[in-house]
């Protein structure tokens, strides 16, 4: 067991974890943050994507021990984040989710695309979603929702775009 200190959604958390525990299982099983989903546990599906030190990462491919002294954001966080707020609205309005299993990670990935200015065209958005599988929607509406949110954010804060 190893003691770790992690900042999760803004709160400091200390826990004793077995080194084999993935960040995903740490969040889900130990912190009850079950919005982070597992679809493959080998890095392909993207359902487990969270932010680690502000950058998107596969929580299935990170060990919780390796997150000692790092900060992690999950879908349960982002309170007051304007980009996620915009995405939540456009995903709802554009019917960009069906079963909802891929959705939390889609939002986190989409937020990153918008903030890195990689959501300027349909092509860019589609390429940026390559690592997030959605089995339900066929992606068309997800792409539209992200494009709309990107435009909206671009208008509000041209410098963030």
């Amino acid at each position: 067991m190893s003691m770790i200190h992690v900042r999760i959604n803004g709160s400091e958390v200390a826990d004793d974890v077995p080194p084999r525990l993935s960040l995903a299982d740490f969040l889900r099983e130990r912190r009850n943050l079950t919005g982070t989903h597992l679809g493959c546990e080998h890095g392909v599906c993207g359902a487990c994507t969270v932010l680690v030190d502000g950058e998107p990462a596969r929580s299935c491919l990170m060990l919780a021990v390796a997150c000692d002294d790092r900060s992690v954001e999950t879908i349960e966080g982002f309170a007051g984040d304007p980009v996620v707020a915009a995405l939540r609205r456009t995903f709802h309005e554009r019917h960009a989710l069906q079963c909802g299993y891929c959705t939390p990670a889609m939002l986190i990935t989409a937020r990153d695309l918008i903030l890195r200015k990689r959501a300027g065209s349909e092509r860019e958005i589609r390429d940026g979603l390559a690592g997030n599988i959605c089995r339900c929607t066929g992606y068309t509406n997800i792409v539209t929702a992200i494009a709309e949110a990107a435009q909206e954010i671009g208008k509000e804060a041209p410098n963030a775009q």
Binding site: G43, A57, L61, G128
Partner: peptide, 9 residues
């Protein structure tokens, strides 16, 4: 190479 969330690490 891979996907952004893999490239970050």
């Amino acid at each position: 190479l891979a996907y952004r969330a893999i490239r970050t690490r």
